[in-house]
Write a protein that binds this DNA or RNA. Structure first.
Lengths: 233, 233
DNA sequence: CGCCAGTTTGACCAAGATCAACGCAAGTGG
DNA sequence: CCACTTGCGTTGATCTTGGTCAAACTGGCG
């Protein structure tokens, strides 16, 4: 049984849940909806602040204006798991259960819009096209999670980190140099490795000239072919 | 990189996709829908037969009348992953994309009802309550997958197999002795371990008096407390 | 300047994969 | 009815990956 403790900085809050409706918002289609219901409230959170925790009611959902949010769960023995990172433009917190099963925390400083779930639901009820769109988005997200299952179940440390980097680069329109907003610990808890292993793999990539690491929070892609090769699957 | 090949018996079909809408059908609520649209076709498949493969169109979805179905994905290097098992009463194949990303195969002999996706969609469009129900079911399933992420990312071999057994027992109304329809290989590909490790863990459970294994395809629960203990999380 | 949080690197260890052999029951064909 | 095959399942010996423990490094910041 592994002992990896959730990293020191975090409060001992328990878990809370938030399946992702990211691509929904990403697609820009939801913006129509958002425009319709003018009931959003803007909120800001600072680094490591909790947006919600397990047990909180699920009566609202959020859309990120700027910053990065991590959706995570703390296990009884202190192990932490990050189910996903949400970036600017993503939506999150559109949950199934009545209570949060995961928690949402600000990775750095974050600004979000908060919307009433009930109002949104009513709006969707009155608009079958919107409902269908939402359904498709959710199915799409479901497929993504199934791919993550594959990642966690079958992939080696190298493949996991390579895949993670590629995800990041794709999010940033394949820019050569990107800012990595989250800590090594966050990355580790996301791909289910220890922080040491993440570091070692990154160092290997650097040594092999696949990436450069100007500073701990930015990565420059040097050889994308090699990286894709390593991520394979 | 692991070498575990998908077990010999299976054709070299590629992957195809099917997020699960299991609880939807489970709940019995969908039966209303099914009753409404009398357009289902009954089909049977024999052991290891393919119901659909990657690339097939997603114009229908299925509900299991009897038997067990595995939804799986084959990686390029031969590694196989089973995303889920669907049992009698479950629905599957209600997919997001246009083409299947996973494949569905009969574990043993299976009888299913096949429904038109388009007709179902139209019906849902005309019934907001149904749409909302479906949405909730999907969110619920999403939560389940997130829990599986945790299983694959963070749990030891013992915890995985224990959890798998508990799942099985719960599906069977906690009967003392259950039939395990799938092969050891299927179990291994579901919990992402090798077949050898699955065997060893089962043997340990047997040795410790937690379960009895009258024959390879049935398991008797002897000490449910101990089993739950081992699954923890 | 020294502290502190986060990162990196190294030495060692254990869980589980790999390789290999054997067991066992269900066909199959003579 | 009995060899022979075939497909799983089980068990053992060994090796690899990645976890654990520990120590050093780095870049802010009071």
């Amino acid at each position: 049984m592994y002992r990896q403790l959730a990293n020191s900085g975090y409060r001992n809050h328990v878990a809370a849940m938030a399946p992702r409706v990211a691509s929904l918002a990403e697609s820009g289609q939801l913006d129509a909806l958002v425009a319709l219901e003018r009931i959003g409230t803007q909120l800001s959170f600072s680094r490591n602040e909790e947006i919600y925790t397990e047990g909180d009611s699920t009566e609202c959902w959020y859309k990120i204006i700027s910053g990065t949010v991590r959706i995570c769960k703390l296990l009884a023995d202190g192990r932490r798991h990050i189910t996903e990172f949400c970036f600017s433009g993503d939506g999150f917190g559109f949950d199934g259960a009545r209570e949060r099963v995961f928690s949402a925390e600000a990775v750095g400083d974050v600004i979000v819009m908060r919307f009433s779930r009930k109002a949104t639901e009513q709006m969707i009820d009155q608009n079958p096209a919107l409902a269908r769109m939402l359904r498709e988005t959710m199915l799409h997200d479901l497929t993504n999670v199934y791919n993550r299952l594959l990642l966690l179940g079958r992939m080696t440390a190298t493949e996991r980190v390579a895949t993670f980097l590629i995800e990041l680069f794709e999010r940033c329109d394949r820019k050569k140099t990107i800012v990595v907003p989250m800590s090594r610990n966050d990355i580790a808890d996301y791909v289910c490795l220890t922080i040491e292993t993440v570091c070692r793999v990154l160092s290997t990539f650097k040594r092999d000239g696949i990436i450069a690491i100007p500073n701990a929070h930015s990565v420059e892609l040097r050889d994308s072919e090699a990286l894709e090769e390593l991520a394979e699957a």
